[in-house]
């Protein structure tokens, strides 16, 4: 058995006396989609920030199998190495597109930034790649020079996806990528994500409060409550035959998942 791509062990974080999340452990294989579900305040966003190394844990570790096959503890990486990893081999799709995009920079510039960041210096090729990616996320080519401030919510999320996937990352973190969007826009976005994840064999950790999103996208699921993982397993198993009282409540609280 090969090493997992991501190895999370015992992640714990307090905000002062308040618990963010406690003792969270999981493995993620290449191509595997893991959903983290729970209500707001359950610790799922804290968990994602810890995995993304945006927050430092009180204890626990995040290991990642680098492209050379060696699993490294992310806390032990140098700053330059960590940042290079985050902008090439990882992606982060944020709920608020304004935090994940440069709102004053054109769509093409947003997509091209990671390419220029890794040293591409040929304008024509950068633009060509940006056009390819805009097509993949269903943004018309004539919008390439428009800034995302002129895009709808759904388009901004799609642009964020293109901006993140252009360097062909192996791991993508998603924080409520579809919330706040109209239902029909959500459906289109979910379908797009589903297709790209399968086509590119991405490993994904997706945080969502929407069980339908978890069901559509994920293979496995972590149910969090009050900072702890209370149930985990195959997504359809946990949603169709939940064992924990809280998970049963969660599943029964949605109209149709």
């Amino acid at each position: 058995m090969t090493e997992p791509l991501l190895r999370v062990r015992g992640l714990t974080k307090h905000y002062g006396p308040r618990l963010g999340c406690a003792e969270v452990s999981f493995d993620l294989d290449p191509g595997e989609v893991l959903a983290v579900v729970g209500e707001s305040g359950s610790g799922k966003s804290t968990l994602l920030s810890l995995v993304a190394t945006e927050l430092a844990p009180d204890s626990g570790s995040v290991g990642y199998r680098m492209r050379d096959g060696v699993t490294r503890d992310l806390a032990a990486l140098g700053e330059a190495e960590r940042r290079a990893l985050l902008r090439t081999d990882w992606g982060f799709i944020r709920q608020d597109a304004a935090l994940g995009l440069r709102m004053a920079v054109s769509a093409g510039g947003n997509v091209g930034e990671r390419l220029m960041g890794k040293g591409d210096r040929h304008y024509g090729r950068i633009r060509g790649t940006a056009l390819d990616w805009l097509a993949k996320v269903e943004i018309a080519p004539d919008r390439i020079d428009d800034p995302p401030s002129r895009f709808s919510g759904g388009m901004r999320q799609r642009l964020q996806i293109a901006r993140n996937l252009v360097t062909e990352p192996r791991l993508v973190l998603m924080d409520e990528p579809t919330s706040g969007l109209d239902v029909s826009v959500q459906a289109r976005l979910l379908d797009l994500i589903r297709g790209l994840v399968a086509e590119l064999g991405l490993a994904v950790v997706i945080v969502t409060h929407d069980l339908a999103v978890a069901r559509l996208l994920s293979h496995r699921i972590l149910v969090m409550r009050a900072g702890r993982v209370i149930e985990t397993g195959l997504t359809d198993q946990v949603l169709d035959d939940p064992a924990e009282p809280y998970t049963q409540l969660l599943v029964s609280s949605v109209l149709a998942a």
Binding site: A80, R83, S106, G109, G112, E113, R114, L115, G117, G119
Partner: peptide, 16 residues
């Protein structure tokens, strides 16, 4: 960290 991709984003925007 000599991360200057962003500087080229500005030049990219110019050309675009």
């Amino acid at each position: 960290l000599a991360e200057y991709g962003l500087m080229h984003v500005k030049l990219y925007e110019d050309i675009a």
